[in-house]
Design a binder for these strands. Structure first.
Length: 592
RNA sequence: GGCUCGGUAGUUCAGUUGGUUAGAACGCUGGCCUGUCACGCCAGAGGUCGAGGGUUCAAGUCCCUUCCGAGUCGCCA
C-alpha cells in the first residue's frame, strides 16, 4: 500500500478541460471502473466533482501498468500524469475530451466489492442504502443533493445576515412542554427523576431573544419530535428559524419572499414571482380542501349543499341535515381518463380519509351518467351540473359528510391524487402561496377541549380578540404558512407581547394560572419586562431541500436519516444501554 | 394503533392451476484481448426463496403466526 508522502493534489478530477491539455496534474479519488483491454487499461477516477479517465498503455512503465491491472471498483488511488487529448472523445463526460497519461500511481486503500453499484439513479432497496449510507452517499445524485443543501444553508446565512439577522444558538437541553408533539426526553444524572427535553422548536427562546433586544434572530437548528415518520417527516429535522421585532405579518412575509426568490434563483436559476399569492385559510379550505393547496392545477372544490339539502337521496341530504356539507370537484375534460374501475379505486382512496364514499357524474357525448341520477329530480341533477360548470368530457366527484373536515380532506386529497394520475404535477413548476388567517383554535377530541392550532403564544387577529373566550371556532390568528406545490415549507405568526393578552390566551385554552405558571412561567414573567411586538417563521429546511433537489423524500437530502420505526439502520440506534448507565441515572426498566 | 403494498443470488427482478435440479440481467471470480468509456469474448462461483408453524405424496407458490421495509390514516401545538 502506498501513502501520500510528497504527493500534492493539483485539483479535483472533474475540473479539467481541453485548455489544460499538456499540463502535468495530480488527482485523487475512487476507482469508478477499470477497463482492461489487454495491452491497454482505462480507469475512470471519481471524486465529488466527477470523473476523469486515466490511461495506461505501452508507454506506461511496466510496474505502473501492472499495478493498474490490479485496480478494482472503489479502490482509493492517487495519480500524477500529463493531460492529453483522447483518441476518441466521450461527449457524455465534461472531461470527455481528455485523459490522464499516468506517470505515477499510488494505491492508497483497497475496497471490498460494495453491496450495490456506486452509480447515479441506482434503484436499490432503501434499507440497504441506509445500512451502507456512507456508500450510498458516494453516488453522484446524493453528492449533488447534499451539495444543494449546503448551498441553500449558505445562502440563508448570507441573506439573513445582510438583512440584519444575528445567528444565535439556543439550548438543545430544554424543558418539556407537554402541549403539542411528544418530546424526546433526556435523563439527568445530577437530577435523578428529572428530565430535559430535546427542543421541538426554539420557539420560546427566540421570543426571549426579541425581548432581549436582538431585534432579528436566525438559526439553522435541529428540532426533535417523537411522532410517527412520513416521507416528509423525520424525528429529527432541521429548521431555518427566524424571529423579528417590531413587525407585522407583511413585514415578515416580505423578508421571506426575498429569501426564497434569492435561493431559487441562485440554486436553480429559477425566477419565482414575488410577491407570492395570498389566500386566507378559509378560502384555501373552501377552494382546495387543504390548508396547503397545490396550485399547479385546478379541480377546485364547489359547494352544492344548498342544491341537495332537500333532495330525496339520503347520501346527500343526510350529512347536511346533520350540519355537514356536500361538495364536488370537476375533473375538467378528464372523464375519459377515469373509467368505472378507476373511479372505484378513487372511492377506496377517499375512504382512507374517512369519507363514506364518492358519488360521481360523467358528461360524455352530451350524455350524463352518474351514480346518483335516479335518486334526484331532473332539476336537481341539472342544477348540480350547472353549479359544477360541467362541460362535455367532464367528470365530477362528490363527497358529503356531516363533518366538513372529512369532506375537505377527502376532496383535497382526491384532487391531488387525480392530478398525480394525470401527470399534471410538473416538478419544475414552483407555485408559492401564503396561507393566512389560520384559526386560533382547533378542537381536540382526544383532550375534549380547544387547543391552540399553532401554539399558545400566537397573537389573535385584532378584530377577533373579543372572540377568544366567546367564539373559539370563529377566532382567527395572525398566523401564516408558506406553501409550495402542496407542501408546507414553513409557518409562523405574530406573537403575543403583553402579559395581559398572554393571560387571556391561557384562560381561553383552559389553563389555570398555576398551570400556565408551571409550564410557561419563565415566559410570562419575562413578558412583564417589556416585550416588543414580534413575529417570525420557521422553515422546514429538509422539505425545502427536497423540493429543490427534486427528491421524493426528505431522506434523500439528509445525510444520515432514520427509517419508519425511527431507528437508524447503520448504527442501529436506538440501542440498549448498560445497567450501570441506568443505575447512574436512577432509572429502571419496567419488567426488568 | 389501523389500512395498502412489498421481502426469491451481492443487486434489480421473473418464477404459470402447488409438480423434474429455482432462472435472467447486472455485479463478482478466472482466462483472452492495444482505444475503451454500460468495452468485448470465453468459462465459473454464487440461493436457510425474511423467520416459524401448518395443509399436502409434493410448497418460492396455499393457510396461520411473526419480523422487517415503503406509502398512508390517526398522530405531528
Amino acid at each position: 500500500m502506498d501513502n501520500l508522502k510528497g504527493f500534492h493534489r493539483s485539483g479535483y478530477c472533474g475540473i479539467w478541460r481541453s485548455a489544460h491539455i499538456g499540463q502535468e496534474v495530480s488527482v485523487c479519488g475512487w476507482v469508478q471502473r477499470q477497463r482492461n483491454l489487454g495491452g491497454l487499461i482505462f480507469v475512470d477516477l471519481r471524486d465529488r466533482s466527477g470523473l476523469l479517465q486515466l490511461a495506461f498503455d505501452e508507454d506506461t512503465a511496466k510496474e505502473i501498468f501492472e499495478k493498474a491491472a490490479t485496480l478494482r471498483s472503489e479502490y482509493v488511488i492517487a495519480a500524477r500524469g500529463i493531460l492529453r487529448e483522447r483518441e476518441s472523445k466521450n461527449p457524455e463526460l465534461p472531461t470527455g475530451d481528455l485523459e490522464l497519461n499516468v506517470l505515477e500511481l499510488r494505491l492508497l486503500a483497497r475496497s471490498e466489492t460494495p453491496p450495490f453499484e456506486i452509480v447515479e439513479n441506482s434503484d436499490v432497496n432503501d434499507m440497504l442504502r441506509l445500512q451502507y449510507r456512507y456508500l450510498d452517499l458516494r453516488r453522484p445524485d446524493m453528492q449533488k443533493a447534499i451539495a444543494t443543501r449546503h448551498k441553500i444553508t449558505k445562502i440563508a446565512r448570507d441573506y439573513f445576515d445582510e438583512q440584519g439577522f444575528y445567528e444565535i444558538e439556543t439550548p438543545m437541553l430544554t424543558k418539556s412542554t407537554p402541549e403539542g408533539a411528544r418530546d424526546y426526553l433526556v435523563p439527568s444524572r445530577v437530577h435523578p427523576g428529572k428530565f430535559y427535553a430535546l427542543p421541538q422548536s426554539p420557539q420560546q427562546y427566540k421570543q426571549l431573544l426579541m425581548l432581549s433586544g436582538f431585534d432579528r434572530y436566525m438559526q439553522i437548528t435541529r428540532c426533535f419530535r417523537d411522532e410517527d415518520l412520513r416521507a416528509d417527516r423525520q424525528p429529527e429535522f432541521t429548521q431555518i428559524d427566524l424571529e423579528m421585532s417590531f413587525v407585522n405579518e407583511e413585514d415578515v412575509m416580505l423578508v421571506q419572499e426575498g429569501f426564497l426568490s434569492r435561493v431559487f434563483f441562485e440554486v436553480l436559476n429559477v425566477e419565482v414571482n414575488a410577491p407570492f399569492r395570498r389566500m386566507t385559510w378559509r378560502e384555501a379550505m373552501d377552494r382546495f380542501g387543504s390548508d396547503k393547496p397545490d396550485l399547479r392545477f385546478g379541480f377546485e372544490l364547489c359547494d352544492i349543499s344548498d342544491l341537495v339539502k332537500d333532495c330525496g337521496f339520503g347520501v346527500f341530504s343526510g350529512p347536511i341535515a346533520a350540519g355537514g356539507t356536500v361538495r364536488l370537484i370537476n375533473l375538467n375534460g378528464h372523464a375519459a381518463d377515469f373509467p368505472r374501475k378507476k373511479i372505484d379505486k378513487l372511492a377506496d382512496f377517499a375512504k382512507t380519509y374517512r369519507a363514506k364514499g364518492v358519488a360521481w357524474a360523467r358528461l360524455l357525448d352530451g350524455k350524463v351518467t352518474s351514480s346518483y341520477q335516479k335518486f334526484l329530480s331532473d332539476e336537481e341533477n341539472a342544477a348540480i351540473m350547472e353549479r359544477a360548470n360541467a362541460k362535455d368530457g367532464d367528470l365530477i366527484l362528490i363527497v358529503g359528510d356531516e363533518k366538513e373536515e372529512i369532506v375537505f380532506a377527502a376532496l383535497g386529497a382526491l384532487r391531488c391524487e387525480c392530478a398525480k394520475q394525470l401527470d399534471l404535477l410538473k416538478p419544475n413548476d414552483f407555485q408559492f402561496l401564503w396561507v393566512t388567517e389560520f384559526p386560533m383554535f382547533e378542537f381536540s377530541e382526544e383532550e375534549d377541549r380547544y387547543v391552540a392550532m399553532h401554539h399558545p403564544f400566537t397573537a389573535p387577529m385584532d378584530e377577533d380578540v373579543e372572540k377568544l373566550e366567546t367564539d373559539k371556532k370563529g377566532c382567527r390568528a395572525k398566523a401564516y404558512d408558506i406553501v409550495l406545490n402542496g407542501t408546507e415549507l414553513g409557518g409562523g405568526s405574530i406573537r403575543i407581547n403583553t402579559p395581559e393578552m398572554q393571560e387571556t390566551m391561557f384562560r381561553a385554552l383552559g389553563f389555570t394560572y398555576d398551570d400556565a405558571m408551571a409550564r410557561f412561567g419563565h415566559l410570562i414573567k419575562a413578558f412583564e419586562y417589556g416585550a416588543p411586538p414580534h413575529g417570525g417563521l420557521a422553515y422546514g429546511l429538509d422539505r425545502l431541500c427536497m423540493l429543490m433537489a427534486g427528491a421524493d423524500s426528505i431522506r434523500d437530502v439528509i445525510a444520515f436519516p432514520k427509517v419508519q420505526n425511527a431507528s437508524e439502520p447503520m448504527t442501529q440506534c436506538p440501542a440498549e444501554v448498560e445497567i450501570k448507565q441506568l443505575d447512574e441515572l436512577k432509572l429502571s426498566l419496567q419488567g426488568s
